[in-house]
């Protein structure tokens, strides 16, 4: 397997409570990896360890390594803003920034100084809105506030905003759980379209979505990885009792 991310001996504590125990996994390049498991099993914690979001909460302790292309993102010489630029995050609920639609997409490119002049920014904004499948709907209202969009459109805007800083990896934290079925389909479709260009890691609590998206699966329970592997194998021939029970909907 050509792995893009390797997690080694990762332990995470919130205060005294251990949220992740000795995690060792590999995430394949340019595929969709789905992290699943019952709620409270640590899937979101694992996801947020990949873009160093855990340290934003007071009292979190992290040990172990997360290697992206062999480079430990927790090493002290690493620039956390560069990590987050390379590892984008699509949040559970869409969080448009309090600016116009245009500025939402250009914001990241602007702070990273990724383009030279206004024209380049304009073209890039259009490109990423097209990539996220939102361009046709917003091209006439680019300077309206982003909050004027519907919630499904907002989530696609957030996707465009994330893509605009040219990440290699996209993390999705239950990215469709706040959306209506049609908007969910939009997002899922986009993730499938983009998978050949990006390494995608999605947390989901619905089995059906996992089956629709996953090429690679990580099943977690109580802060530990129970089973991980190619989707077909895990779904059809689970090796662990717990995985079987979960797939049968027993918890």
């Amino acid at each position: 397997m050509n792995s893009h991310i390797q997690v080694r001996n990762l332990n995470v504590f919130y205060g005294k409570q251990q949220a992740l125990k000795e995690i060792n996994i590999e995430i394949p390049r340019q595929q969709i990896t789905v992290i699943m498991g019952p709620s409270g099993c640590g899937k979101t914690t694992l996801l947020k360890s990949l873009n160093r979001f855990l340290e934003l909460t007071d009292g979190t302790q992290i040990s172990g390594q997360v290697l992206v292309d062999g480079q430990d993102i927790y090493a002290s010489a690493v620039d956390v803003t560069e990590v987050r630029k390379r590892v984008g995050l699509l949040a559970q609920r869409p969080t448009p920034l309090p600016m116009s639609i245009y500025e939402n997409v250009s914001y990241g490119m602007y702070i990273h100084q990724m383009r030279k002049d206004k024209r380049e920014y304009k073209d890039a904004v259009r490109h990423y809105l097209e990539l996220a499948g939102l361009w046709e709907e917003v091209k006439k209202r680019m300077h309206d506030p982003a909050t004027s969009l519907s919630i499904g459109q907002q989530q696609r805007l957030c996707l465009a905003r994330g893509l605009a800083v040219e990440p290699e990896i996209i993390l999705g934290d239950e990215p469709t759980s706040a959306l209506d079925p049609i908007s969910s389909q939009h997002i899922e479709k986009k993730l499938l379209e983009l998978k050949s260009q990006y390494t995608t890691v999605v947390v989901t609590h619905t089995l059906r979505q996992a089956k629709r998206l996953a090429e690679h699966v990580i099943f977690m329970y109580l802060g530990e990885v129970v089973e991980a592997g190619p989707a077909q194998e895990v779904f059809n021939h689970p090796q662990q009792e717990r995985t079987r029970q979960y797939l049968e909907g027993l918890f």
Binding site: F53, L89, A91, C158, R161
Partner: peptide, 13 residues
Amino acid sequence: NDLRFASLAIGAT
């Protein structure tokens, strides 16, 4: 906090 996280997530300081 969601707003702050949204900005930090794309690599803002």
